[in-house]
């Protein structure tokens, strides 16, 4: 009879070692053995009644081995059945572009609104002339627009970090712990880039159209004082809003990102309309950047915690 020697199963075992190490149950071995042409008749050569008991012996004799059965990268683990639809329709994209443009133009719109609504007192209370304010606002808009690419880069980095963690991390808690610093770092990077572009834009503006009157201090001071503190705050909150929206969009929450941007747009437009009717106190509302801060800051304050929670979840990065 076949096999030979005292242990006929040994040869079979050597032949199917990989199968036995990776099997999850004896029946799996039985199914594969039958597929390889080893029926119950052949099992008798190995002193077993049928292929099932032969499979049980094989399963018992070979220990399960942690195989390096890494699936090819990117196949089903990342793009799982629940992967969010990445390809959004053109209509959605148009809306997103429009909303982003609206958010970017907010500083200019609020300043123009102030200049058009109450030219005399507003300009006087702000302590600066209208055209100069418009120029500053335009420079800030250009700077924010230039930093949008950085926002998208940061968002892509968030997503990439999430996917890398998703591939390597062991537990949900670990994933959350590792993802915790990712969003703040991305936002910080974007803010740094935004500060740089804003500074450059204002420097160019100062060089082209220097402010009338005595120039106190060097160029650095002149550039920083070109925009008031509220305008810097407004620029920062706008940058935060855009970066958070970009991160949400990259991680499959397009509609939330769009809603955040639209909220900021609507708030800004509404507030400047209210101001032009004279319903807002003249003091702070007329300061350049105040309404932008209010509008984008509100949207960012709502979006930030949401993004913090949502991007800490593994589902967002699949």
């Amino acid at each position: 009879m076949g096999g030979g020697g005292a242990d006929p199963v040994r040869e079979l075992l050597a032949e199917h070692r990989e199968l036995c190490e990776r099997a999850t149950h004896p029946w799996e071995i039985a199914a594969v053995l039958e597929e390889a042409g080893l029926g119950s008749a052949a099992a008798r050569r190995y002193r077993h009644a049928d292929v099932f008991s032969l499979a049980e012996e094989l399963y018992a004799r070979v220990p399960r081995k942690p195989a390096d059965d890494e699936p090819p990268p990117g196949t089903p683990t990342v793009a799982g059945p629940l992967a969010p639809q990445r390809a959004s329709g053109w209509r959605h994209r148009c809306w997103a572009r429009g909303a982003l443009l609206g958010a970017l133009l907010l500083p200019l719109v609020t300043v123009l609104g102030a200049a058009a609504g109450r030219p005399g007192p507003a300009a006087g209370s702000a302590g600066s002339s209208g055209p100069s304010q418009v120029g500053t606002a335009a420079a800030l808009v250009l700077a924010a627009w230039a930093a949008c690419g950085a926002a998208d880069r940061a968002a892509r980095w968030v997503r990439h970090a999430g996917q890398v963690q998703l591939r390597t991390v062991g537990t949900l808690a670990q994933f959350r712990a590792r993802m915790r610093p990712v969003l703040p770092v991305a936002l910080g990077l974007h803010l740094a880039v935004l500060a740089l572009t804003s500074f450059t834009a204002l420097a160019v503006l100062t060089a082209i159209a220097p402010r009338p009157g005595p120039a106190a201090g060097g160029l650095l001071q002149a550039v920083i004082h070109r925009a008031g503190p509220t305008q810097w705050v407004a620029q920062a909150s706008l940058g935060l809003l855009i970066a958070v929206a970009a991160a949400l969009r990259r991680c499959g929450r397009q509609s939330v990102a769009l809603a955040g941007l639209l909220t900021a747009d609507g708030l800004g437009a509404g507030l400047s309309a209210v101001r032009s009717c004279g319903l807002l106190p003249a003091g702070w509302a007329a300061a350049p950047g105040a309404l932008t801060t209010l509008a984008t800051g509100t949207a960012a304050v709502v979006l930030l915690p949401y993004a913090w929670v949502a991007l800490g979840r593994p589902q967002a990065h699949r």
């Binding site: 942690p66 799982g80 062991g170 949900l172």
Partner: peptide, 28 residues
């Protein structure tokens, strides 16, 4: 799923489940 799967006594002879395994198995 993760809590039970990583509990002592679970049948993970040939590999501990990672987070992505939890997600994929949960979906399936």
């Amino acid at each position: 799923l993760e809590r039970v799967w990583t509990a002592p006594g679970a049948d993970t002879a040939a590999g501990q489940p990672l987070l992505r395994d939890v997600l994929v198995a949960g979906d399936l």
